[in-house]
Design a protein around this nucleic acid. Sequence first.
RNA 1: GGAGACGUCGCAUAGUCCGGUCGAGUGCGCCUCACUGCUAAUGAGGUAAGGAGUCAAAUCCUUCGGAGGUUCAAAUCCUCUCGUCUCCGCCA
Length: 423
Amino acid sequence: MIDLAALRLDPDAVRRSQQVRGESVELVDEVLAADVARRAAVGVFEALRTEQKSLGALVAKAQGDEKQAILAQTKTLSDQVKLAESQLRDLDAALENLVLGLSNIVALGVPVGGEDDFVVLREVGERRDFSAEGFTVRDHVELGEFIGAIDIERGAKVSGSRFYYLTGPGAMLELALVQLAMTTAQANGFQPMIPPALVKPAAMEGTGFLGQAAENVYRLEADDLYLVGTAEVPLAAYHMDEILDLASMPKRYVAFSPCFRREAGSHGKDTRGIFRVHWFDKVEMFSFCPVAEAEEEHLRLLGYEEAFLQALEIPYRVIDVATGDLGSSASRKFDCEAWIPSQERYREVTSTSNCTTFQSRRLRIRGREESGISPIATLNGTLCAVTRTIVALFENHQQADGSIKVPAALRPFLGGAEYFQVK
RNA sequence: GGAGACGUCGCAUAGUCCGGUCGAGUGCGCCUCACUGCUAAUGAGGUAAGGAGUCAAAUCCUUCGGAGGUUCAAAUCCUCUCGUCUCCGCCA
C-alpha cells in the first residue's frame, strides 16, 4: 500500500509510476476523490459523536424530568450517529480498496518497458564450450536420470504434472544446498528460520500476493488458509502489527521453506523437467530496515545471491528488471539468471526486490526512530531456489560420461564427494 | 476432540459481578528535570497507536484480542470468533 499522504502531496509521481508499469493512471484520481469524500464524512461523524458524548455525560448527572428531556434528545442523535458511522465505514472501505489497487512507486532509474526491456548489469563466470570439450550437452532431465537424482515420471504418477521426486543423490544434494545457503547466511548475520508454509489471509494479503498474483496461490478452502509461494510471506508477516526498535534494525532473516505455485497461465511453458514446478523448496533472505538504508541493503542481498552462485561455479548474469515486470510490491528488482547450456540462454534462478514501505504499510510494521514512528522498508532475496539451482548445477557441471562434478563449496555437505556418478 | 480459566496502554496487573465521573488506576521499565564528586538511591513530571484538524499547536474522533448485538450510553451486558494456558483423550 502506498502512502496516501504522499499521494495527496504529489499525485503526479504516482501517475508516472502507474504509467510506466502499464497500469491504471485514472486510479490515482479515483483515490483522490475517495479521499476527499472520506475526510468529509469523518468531519460529519466526529461532530455528531462529540455532541452525543457530551449529552451522554449530562444524562449521567441529570435527574428526573431534566433527565427525560435529555434522553429524548439523545435518541434521535443516536440514530444520526449510527448513520454517519456506517457511511464513514463504507467510504473508508471504498478508499482502502482503491489504494490497495495501486502498485508500489517505481524507483528512479528502473528501465522502462516490458518483460524484455531489462538492462543487463553484468555477466559473471565462464560459460563452457561443450563442443570444444568434445561432447553434446545433456539437459538436467537426462542427467538427473543418469545419476538417479530426479524421478519425474513417478512425480507425475503420484501428484500430477510439474511434480517430481528428488531421489538418492538428488535428495542429498538438496540438503547440501540448503545447508550451504543457511550456514553462509547465518555467518552473514541472518537469523535462520523455519517458518510456516500455511498462512492466514491477512499474511497473504499483507505481502501483496492476493492482487495480480492471486491466481497462482493455492488456497485451502476448508480452513481458509493459503500455501505460501515463498517464505517471503511468513517472514514479512512475522513482525505484522509490531513497532520495531530502531536499534534492532536491520533485522535480517533467512528461511528454508517449501514453495507452492499454481503456475496458472504458464501452460506449455517449461514443461520439461523441474525448472517450473508446483512445489519446490527454497532458502530466502528477508530484511526489515530503515527506509534510508533500503537501497544499500538491496545491493547487499544481491551481493549474497551472486556470491552463492559463484560458490557453485555457475555462470550467470544480473538484470535490472523493467518497470512492467516488477510485480506490485517491488520498487526495484534484480534477477540473477544462470546460464542453462541445454537451452543456450540465461534463466532466472534468484531474484531480489526492494519493496520500500509497500508491504510494511499493509502489514502495519513500523519502526521507532528519533523522528517518530514510521513505516520501514522490507526487502527479500532468493538465496537458493533448490530445483532451479539443481538444473543449473547439473547442466553446467556435467561431464562427457554423464557424471556431474560437485563444486568444492558443496563437498563438505556431501561427504567430500567430488562427482555424482552415473548409476 | 472433551472440560475449564484467561486475553486491558512496553512488561506485570486493577477495573468487568452492580453500564455513565474509565482512554482507563497501580508497580516495573523508559525519558526529562532536581538533588548528589560519578554511579546508585531519592523526589517531581512525562511516557499507546491510528485518524481528523493546524504553518505548528490547541482541540476532537476511534481503538480495552477480533466481529456483531443490546442501550441514549459498553473495557463492563449478550452472541459468535480467534488466540493463550491447565486437565483429559488421541497422535507424528
